[in-house]
């Protein structure tokens, strides 16, 4: 009896937990977040491309309800349940994620996330977008440019940030800049996030031992953290500041495990020598037999004569 009650209780608890998992609560301050730009056909198209590479493998084709089986299951973007989210809610969920949905804040930039949301909203005919009022902290700086220099004597990378304000180009002060080195699967943060000074300049300590390509080139990426204020601003530069790295292919050395052409020398020599020795012995025996039979013949002839 006791066991039965216990198992009933367990089932109850499990169902409770499952239903709790279905709810995904967004903190209140994130719910009202809005995009800084208006959604358009071009953002929807860019969003579709981002959706195909990042989301489709789990969320399927919007409206077709072909999501993959996971617990909790992914929601079809065209469904009412997905569309019931506020823009801010969607932004929070995409950037933070929760098990099993991965966090996208290191994969997609804030602008990218909004672009994806613009695509998701295209499946909701009732949706009317509300755009965030322009933030004043950026003080209406437009066309932000980041220029990267290498200061050799100090082992530092200098970033100079400028933008146009009131149609005059001037430095952007007090903006947080992050410097990355491009790697195969992602961007490696160099030093730490730093703020620009009054001249719009910021210095990053560059590690002396970071590998570059075979000639020492490293692809750098600089980005302003506050995209809401400055728009999407990043700059890519390739500088010859890394350690020239050439490591030979791992299957180049002679080894027991490698292909026939890469046999170890000692094996090649000892094997060849052994084979030759065996053949030499066989031929030696054959020649001896021949010599014996020859000498026998000549003796026979002697006796006949």
């Amino acid at each position: 009896m006791k066991k039965r009650y216990l198992s009933l209780l367990l089932i109850f608890v499990i169902t409770l937990r499952l239903s709790a998992q279905q709810e995904w609560i967004v903190p209140a301050e994130n719910l009202s977040k809005l995009s800084t730009f208006a959604f358009s056909d071009s953002t929807r198209k860019a969003g579709m491309n981002l959706y195909i590479t990042n989301c489709k493998s789990c969320h399927g084709d919007p409206g077709k309800n072909n999501v993959i089986k996971l617990v909790p299951p992914p929601v079809d973007p065209a469904s009412d349940r997905m569309q019931a989210n506020t823009d801010g809610g969607m932004y929070f969920k995409i950037s933070q994620g929760r098990m099993p949905m991965p966090t996208f804040k290191n994969i997609l930039s804030p602008t990218d996330v909004w672009v994806v949301i613009s695509y998701l909203r295209s499946f909701n005919p009732k949706y009317a977008q509300e755009v965030a009022p322009k933030v004043l902290t950026g003080a209406m700086v437009q066309n932000v440019k980041i220029h990267l220099n290498w200061l050799k004597e100090k082992d530092q990378v200098q970033a100079v940030v400028s933008g146009t304000k009131d149609k005059i180009e001037q430095p952007v002060a007090g903006a947080e800049v992050k410097l990355f080195a491009k790697r195969y699967f992602g961007n490696l943060l160099i030093d730490e996030a730093r703020n620009t000074d009054a001249q719009g300049q910021v210095l990053f300590n560059f590690p002396k031992d970071l590998p570059g390509d075979s000639t020492g080139y490293v692809q750098l990426l600089a980005r302003l953290s506050d995209e809401e204020a400055y728009g999407e601003s990043k700059s890519e530069t390739t500088l010859q500041i890394g350690v020239p790295t050439y490591k030979p292919p791992l299957n180049e050395q002679r080894a027991m495990w490698n292909v026939v052409q890469k046999t170890p020398i000692w094996l090649l020599l000892s094997y060849t020598f052994t084979v030759l020795a065996v053949w030499a012995f066989i031929f030696y025996v054959l020649f001896q037999i021949r010599a014996i039979s020859k000498s026998g013949l000549s003796k026979d002839q002697d006796t006949i004569d």
């Binding site: 290191n106 992602g186 490696l188 970071l210």
Partner: peptide
């Protein structure tokens, strides 16, 4: 490249 990327956070 002396770099590894975490599969979950995508941090390098």
């Amino acid at each position: 490249q002396d770099a590894v990327t975490n599969g979950t956070t995508k941090e390098t």
